[in-house]
Amino acid sequence: MGWSIAARLGGTLLLAATALAAPPSGALAQDGPVMKRIAETKTLNIGHRDASPPLSYVGQDGKAQGYSIDICLKIAEAAKEELKLDKLEVKFIPLTPQTRIPLLTAGTVDIICESSTHTLGRSRQVSFLNTTFLTGSKLLVRKNSGIKRIEDLTGKVLVAALGGTNERAAQVEIDKKGIKIKGGEIVKVKDNAQAMLNMEQGRADAFTSDDVVLFGLASLAKNPAEWEVVGPYFSYDPYGMIIPRNNDDWRLLGNKTITMLVRSGELHAIYKKWFEPGPSNINYPMSERLRENLELIALPD
């Protein structure tokens, strides 16, 4: 019995590998399966994160919520209207960095609403909707640390969450400017919460992440007044919702919804609800850059 499962598993892996390695035939003419699937099942599966407040997280009531989630719910409404469905059930599926791509490409989730930076490397594998949030890498430090910019990190410990774009950007900056940080490399920890704990305990002197994340963590810290976010941006991180590649109709519907939200001012209202000051008191007013970006993506009809 064991072998038959193992053999089938192996066989499936091989089959899958060969089938998927083959070039997509006739992919040009047809649109992807997401819209069709939504119409048939009358269900939209939204992928979310457990702990990326205030963009995508699980509240104390155990429900998915946040800025990205609210935007995705608007896209769900638009899908219901576009497909003329009498009802559309929205299901929330919690994702982890390990499962999000397998589940998106397997069709278990139709759209991922979290806090992911749109990058070229990732675009090889998935599609991003238009940028709905803009942030960038900065440093979180203790107010009395004397650190004002990345150049001040000589001999200091810098911590970052594993695999984020921030750690990469910080490394580039450190190499470029020849800054000698303590230990020779950035300490990479499991997630932002762990990085913050390293800071609280004095193991690290600076923590780099998207500034919105840093503001959020500082606002939740035991003593928010102890912390400040410093430095000029050393990377820009545009966030967008993620959908499977080759689903032009679905992508168009998503982008159109975002455009309509910008034009009607609803998007700004959603922003205000989550960020000014927001449930976690993050108090992160919309930047000029994001305001301009939103105007730019609100394409004419």
Binding site: Q98, I101, G121, R122, R124, Q125, L162, G163, R168
Partner: peptide, 10 residues
Amino acid sequence: RQIEEYTFAA
């Protein structure tokens, strides 16, 4: 995990 984050090649 880090490679997955960079490339999404899970």
